[in-house]
Simulated scan of single mutants.
Amino acid sequence: MIPSLNSISSRLRVRQLKLLIALEEHGSLHKAAEQVAITQPGATKALHEIETTLGATLFTRTSQGLVPNDLGRCVIRYARLIQSDIAHLREEMIGILQGQGGRLSIGVIMGAVPLLMQSLNRLRQTQPELSIHIVEDTSARLLALLDQGRVDVVICRTSVSTRPDAYEKLIEHPESLALVAHPNHPLANTTHSSLDKLTGYRWVVYPSNMPMRLALEQQFRLAGLDFPRYPIETASTFTMLSLLQEDPYLLAVMPSDVALFSERFGLLKRFSIDLQINSEPYSVVIRQGADVTAPAKMLIEELRQDMGLTGQPHK
């Protein structure tokens, strides 16, 4: 039986976690002991203490040495997270003491990446010693990271959460959509296109229930057209761009900011078609009632400038 959380928390030590990581890397108690600067008997004792604390065997002895089992790999993964968090703690403490630098962890959906890059570029000019970590993912996963304290602030949509009231939307930003294709698409250079002329082509779309997929489905309904059959589905913008490069007959809808950025580098072409709908706005989000770090406050002010907003936060 796995011991209680209180039991594990009171008995597990950081140095033991370092030993687990070293054992995974070397597969040898002798080499792992050298890395964490203890004797081999000390390492053997420490491993026994860890397994006793957790109530489980974590390694299997093989001809290649010690190999972590499924439970061992799970524990080592969290040991690395704890070690990383301690390193981040030190960085942030140094930043606070020095009045500059520190660490900033940001979550962002794909459509807001160009906007975030503008704000971060200015922030880095005034805070060159700031350590920055960026996570790009779906709104649901970003909100989960925010709940876990893994990120300081996220740019996403809170409507995907079952408890949107748990979050505070500081700034809200509308998001327009663009119809795009490979620059060599047969209709890419036409002066004007209509949606009914595009139904015969293949499409790459976002997965069902994602806001941009719902917006595209609504556009087809407004036009009285059936949604394209047998589309390729992906939540990855990089995958979408790669597919458009490989197949000049594919069509896609993506956020206008991302489309403009990609068009600048000749990766795709925007169609001159007026989409009558926009995707749901996204927001700069923190946890309700959470303390915001100094670096996060500075980023929020930069984002406020890029979104063309001043004064009080959006509620």
Rank of each mutant, 00 (worst) to 15 (best):
G95W: 00
I96F: 13
Q100A: 12
Q100S: 15
L104S: 02
S105T: 07
S105V: 06
G107V: 02
G107Q: 07
V108Y: 05
I109M: 04
M110Q: 15
G111V: 07
A112H: 04
A112S: 12
P114H: 05
L115N: 03
L115F: 10
L115D: 01
L116P: 00
L116F: 08
M117G: 04
Q118P: 00
Q118R: 13
N121C: 12
R122H: 09
L123M: 04
R124E: 06
Q125V: 09
T126M: 08
T126Q: 09
Q127V: 12
P128V: 05
L130I: 09
I132L: 15
I132V: 14
H133V: 09
H133W: 09
I134M: 12
I134Y: 05
V135H: 10
E136T: 14
E136M: 14
E136K: 15
S139N: 00
S139A: 06
R141H: 10
A144F: 06
L146S: 03
G149Q: 06
G149S: 02
G149N: 03
R150G: 04
V151F: 03
V153R: 06
V153G: 01
V153Q: 05
C156E: 02
C156V: 07
S159P: 00
V160W: 01
V160T: 04
A166Q: 12
Y167N: 07
E168P: 04
E168V: 12
K169R: 13
I171R: 07
E172D: 09
H173E: 13
H173F: 12
E175Q: 13
S176A: 10
S176D: 13
L177A: 12
L179G: 00
V180Q: 06
V180K: 07
A181Y: 03
H182Y: 04
H182A: 03
P183I: 03
N184Y: 10
P186G: 03
L187K: 07
A188F: 12
T190S: 15
T190M: 15
T191L: 14
T191H: 12
H192C: 15
H192V: 14
S194R: 15
S194T: 15
L195H: 05
T199I: 15
G200C: 05
G200W: 02
R202V: 03
V205P: 00
Y206P: 00
P207F: 08
S208G: 08
N209R: 15
M210E: 11
M210C: 08
M212R: 10
L214G: 01
A215Q: 06
L216M: 15
E217M: 13
Q218H: 11
R221G: 01
R221C: 08
R221V: 11
L222F: 09
L225W: 03
F227Q: 02
P228N: 03
P228V: 07
R229M: 11
